Amino acid sequence: MSSPVTRPSGLPKQMRASVLSAPGSVSVESRPTPSPAADEVLVRVGSVGVCGSDVHYYQHGRIGDFVVESPLVLGHEAGGAIVQVGSAVEASRVGERVSIEPQRPRGDSAETLAGHYNLDPAMEFYATPPIDGAFAEYVLIQSHFAHRVPDSVSNDAAALMEPLSVGIHAARKAGITAGSRVLITGAGPIGVICAQVARAFGALEVVVSDLSEVRRAQALRLGATQALDPRVDPIESLGVDAFIEASGAAPAIRQGLAALRPAGTAVLVGMGADDPALPVHLIQNKELLVTGVFRYTNTWPLAIALVESGAVDLDSLVTGRFALDEVEAALSESTRESSLKTIVEPGRLSDS
């Protein structure tokens, strides 16, 4: 039975949110606590992961065609607990711990109807201008994109289901299965997550390459079977079944394509130059399949199952933890070589 929209006792009229007002300028503001529409839930945010896109918006105020033209709340990797539901949502969901799938596609677009809702041109996505994100005490999301998580899953892991979903989407597109040999270029957070997903999908060999010795060591600790330095190791001669590019570096794309066996599959995940030069002759002669990923579709149930079963360990990725009024420090921390996932906890008291 659905419930009316009423403000529960104890729910504040105002909330705190970290707001990007201009490149390099973030501050905490007081905003009205939002109320859910009929199909929405209000979530008290427990943890938010810092993504490279958050850092890019903070530093440059734009990513490609997405430009910050008005104050924006960053953060799209979020989990928490439902504290209020809309009139069309079961009241029993109040109190439920959830991981947020931070997007809102149109229900009637050609892409959504074809099962590719992530490609809906009118998508509203957290922390993508002009849609506010989750560096706030409370956020709204449609109820079907608030995915219940079991108590064995931490708040941090609930938040990091979002980058895990990128890894799952990439692994599916790469066709990784039992016995696959996989190359992943880039040992940042997405590269390491892709390595864990590849192992969970049954890959026997997961080779990760990165220029950084620190990141290669992290990759070996968190899922890779081998870690190589692309400046000295023979990447091109690997002959792998699947290649996932997670660095955005043009040389890594070319190395990875050369490392594929004939009829292999390359999946481009990392964001780099808009128009990198590709070895077209190699793609043609080896009949390589080259594709990309843009966010994800229908990944959360599997993501939650992989974490609950222990096949993927997201908690080990956390390398820093900050309060809402420390978002600027969190953004800076996430650029460090040794950083994998920095977490912002809106309910956390700052150390200062």
Rank of each mutant, 00 (worst) to 15 (best):
H169V: 12
S316Y: 04
F322D: 02
V182C: 03
M15Y: 14
P23S: 09
A273H: 14
V269D: 13
N298P: 00
L278D: 14
A88K: 14
P189W: 01
D274W: 10
R348I: 02
I100A: 01
A38I: 03
N155P: 00
R44S: 07
S47Y: 04
S109K: 01
A258R: 03
R31G: 01
G320L: 06
G188D: 10
G347C: 06
L160H: 09
I82V: 14
V214N: 10
T225V: 11
A305P: 01
P102W: 00
G64E: 14
I141M: 07
G202I: 14
A110P: 02
T297F: 04
G270Q: 13
L113F: 05
A91N: 14
C51W: 05
G270L: 13
P230Y: 08
K286D: 13
P189I: 11
Q59W: 00
I304Y: 00
E124C: 04
S212C: 07
G191R: 00
A259F: 05
N285V: 09
S21R: 11
S3L: 11
G320C: 06
V50C: 07
A134D: 12
V139A: 09
V232C: 14
L228R: 14
I141V: 14
R215K: 09
P121V: 09
T225H: 12
G186E: 11
